[in-house]
């Protein structure tokens, strides 16, 4: 008899794998975005099962909400007729090699760390916030600087020039 958390894990894993396969295999690019959402929510489920509630909620908020919506938004504002060959799967050998290499790396990493079982310990919310704003304050600020650069860069890129606009 499998424990409930194991069943939930299999559901979440199926969601992740199914979503990821959907992203890679479908020829409809909007379906791919929806499949990406399913995969992201599945990852949030896996985080939840590892007692990382904060990470799971961030996953839903940032990836499930913001990122997928922005992807869909840009898909729908792009004239899809200009990119008819976007999903013709011509790059699959390259993608297969990359995926195989990443898979091997992950398996090797998982086998060498020695930590086969995850201890059921969640990092408390307060500890997380405290370490983020004291010990890891500099990387945190660097990350926000990177985002700011990206924001300003995108504005510069889409500006068409001229005085009025």
């Amino acid at each position: 008899m499998a424990s409930p958390s194991l069943i939930l894990f299999y559901i979440a894993a199926a969601l992740v794998l199914g979503g990821a396969l959907g992203v890679a295999l479908t020829r409809n690019i909007v379906y791919a975005a929806f499949a990406l959402l399913a995969a992201m929510l599945g990852v949030a489920g896996v985080f939840l099962l590892m007692f990382a509630e904060f990470l799971a909620l961030v996953q839903v908020l940032i990836y499930g909400g913001a990122v997928v919506i922005v992807v869909l938004f840009s898909l729908m504002l792009t004239r899809i007729q200009d990119f008819v060959r976007l999903t013709d799967h011509s790059q699959w050998p390259l993608a297969a090699v990359t995926a195989a290499v990443v898979f091997c790396l992950l398996v090797a990493a998982a086998l060498t760390t020695g930590a086969r079982t995850v201890e059921r310990q969640g990092v408390g919310f307060f500890e997380l916030g405290e370490s983020l704003f004291t010990r890891w304050a500099v990387p945190f600020e660097v990350a926000s600087l990177v985002l700011l650069v990206a924001l300003i860069g995108s504005i510069v890129l889409v500006r068409t020039g001229g005085d009025g606009d």
Binding site: V30, F34, L37, E53, F54, L57, V58, V60, L61, G64, G65, A66, V68, I69, L72, F73, M76, F125
Partner: peptide, 25 residues
Amino acid sequence: NLDMGLFYITAVSVLSVMGLIMAGW
């Protein structure tokens, strides 16, 4: 009752946008 109740609310409330986009498309 969740320790992170408010954060849960903000995270889940974001998801309903997706349904509106799906309906529109």
